[in-house]
Amino acid sequence: MTRPGAETEVNGATAVSLEDVRKTYQLGEPVHALDGVDLEIPRGSYTAIMGPSGSGKSTLMNLVGCLDTPTEGAVVVDGSNVATLSDRERTTLRGSTVGFVFQTFNLMPRLTALENVALPQLFQGVGRDERRERARDLLERVGLGDRIDHVPNELSGGQRQRVALARALVNDPALVLADEPTGNLDTGTEAEVLDLFGEFHDAGTTLVVVTHERHVAERAERIIHLLDGKIERIEELGSAGEPDEPADGGREER
């Protein structure tokens, strides 16, 4: 795969592209967490990344999320090569183009749902009133219009994850990165949250979900299988939400 614009499918643009990316950690002896990965994530796509522990999922996510820089290769997020950016520029890029959803929600415990959703815009220098209005809109869209003044402790797991999703979307990011977004949720809530992901995807949001659960990955349009720091195979699922043939040790509870 080449630089942006080559193989675009939706919206005629690429959200993220990785080109022969390597990431090596020095833990006594060099460990190749990523060992030559080429990947293109088009705008508006819904991608799942699967793989066993130690396959490089987290490292890939950190790179795509502009949290880390590759040892070699180019990671281009929304047109900017992460490797060439300063720490500060990388933070700015991350704040404006990437939205995060974590397994453990990672909401600020003392801030209300509204304030949590508005937090990223605080660091973007958006005015208070505008921030709150935008946050309220998003909370209504994720179905928490009546919970805006509750702190995370007063919300259920599913509600917290919906707040986190609203927060991820607040800056209109080029992509939303979800790391095991349903790992801490029960099956019913999991379905609700995944439905919400589907809704936002339909509305044009670019989604990347890192998971090791087959049925979660199957909601995506394609599944990237990682193994030992390399892309093992890419599984195209056609339209999002339609299950393909089960593989890779996916759970079949649903």
């Binding site: 933070t91 991350r94 704040g95 995060f100 990672n106 990223p120 660091f123 800056n171």
Partner: peptide
């Protein structure tokens, strides 16, 4: 520490 991580993930600069 975790809160600091969250803030940085959502775009807080070091100086923030």
């Amino acid at each position: 520490t975790r809160e600091i991580g969250i803030m940085k993930a959502v775009g807080a600069q070091n100086r923030d």
